[in-house]
């Protein structure tokens, strides 16, 4: 049923560190790679080698430029995927019961055999987490790699979502956010993890860690450039003579 469970045993989710993310897109590639071959319909591409290639991705990394009034602009790389909300609006709008939130771990999933591809869940999600597969006509979304995290055929180290496993900077963390003592929960507490668009009442499970404040160089003029003394280059020999002569002309 598409009614939401009042309580889930666990709240599995991701914690994404915007301070550490370098925007390399490795998580995007790993996600696409894993979800091409495992759970459900493979994420299809249209015109993959044509003029306007496009396809389904469950994770997309945007980059934003933040411009403070009194300091240089800063780039923040921002991975965007399903937040596995407690009050997921995508689940309750589903007319067929294909969209559901699991009681055991809180993962929001789509039963693709029951999905009619009406697209209403994608409309209901404020975060753009769901994309319709143009090939299979069913809705695709992050499964939190449900076919990896419980997969006993994999090495224990690999039993986490593909995006987390692949992240070269360790910007993505996976765990139970319902357990206050879990590593991810402690990380959220320590770093002030936050929700996206909190006033929509979706209660996301995934949390984002804000970028740490950068050191700021003092704005005093005498420290404006440490290289200033070195910039005063004095030409010698013929070039020096030419420099002096030309300097006198104007």
């Amino acid at each position: 049923m598409t009614c939401l469970p009042s309580l889930t045993d666990k709240k599995l989710g991701l914690v994404i560190d915007l301070d550490t993310c370098v925007g390399c897109q490795a998580c995007v590639t790993a996600c696409k790679g894993w979800n091409d071959q495992g759970y459900g319909a493979p994420l299809s591409d249209q015109e993959a080698y044509g003029e306007a290639p496009n396809g389904v991705f469950l994770n997309r990394v945007h980059s934003y430029e933040a411009q403070p009034l009194d300091a240089p602009a800063q780039i923040v790389n921002f991975p965007r995927s399903c937040l596995h909300c407690d009050d997921a609006p995508c689940v309750t709008v589903c007319p067929t019961g294909a969209s559901y939130k699991r009681v055991e771990d809180g993962i929001v999933l789509v039963n693709e055999d029951a999905c009619i591809g009406c697209g209403l869940c994608a409309w209901a999600c404020p975060y753009g987490a769901r994309e319709m597969d143009a090939d299979a006509g069913v809705m695709k979304k992050c499964t939190l790699c449900v076919d990896r995290i419980y997969n006993e055929n994999l090495q224990p180290i690999d039993r986490e979502p593909a995006c987390v496993r692949t992240c070269p900077t360790g910007a993505r963390h996976f765990g139970d956010l319902g357990d206050p003592n879990s590593k991810v929960s402690q990380l959220v507490t320590a770093r002030g993890g936050y929700n996206l668009m909190p006033d929509l009442g979706t209660k996301p499970t995934n949390k984002y860690l804000p970028p740490r404040l950068k050191d700021r160089q003092s704005a005093r003029p005498d420290q404006a450039s440490l290289l200033a003394p070195l910039l005063d280059i004095e030409a010698k020999g013929f070039a020096g003579w030419l420099d002096r002569i030309l300097g006198k002309i104007s």
Binding site: G23, H62, S63, E65, Q67, P68, L69, Q74
Partner: peptide, 10 residues
Amino acid sequence: MGALRLFEAG
């Protein structure tokens, strides 16, 4: 962090 704009859509 300041005024935001999209730098790259990814």
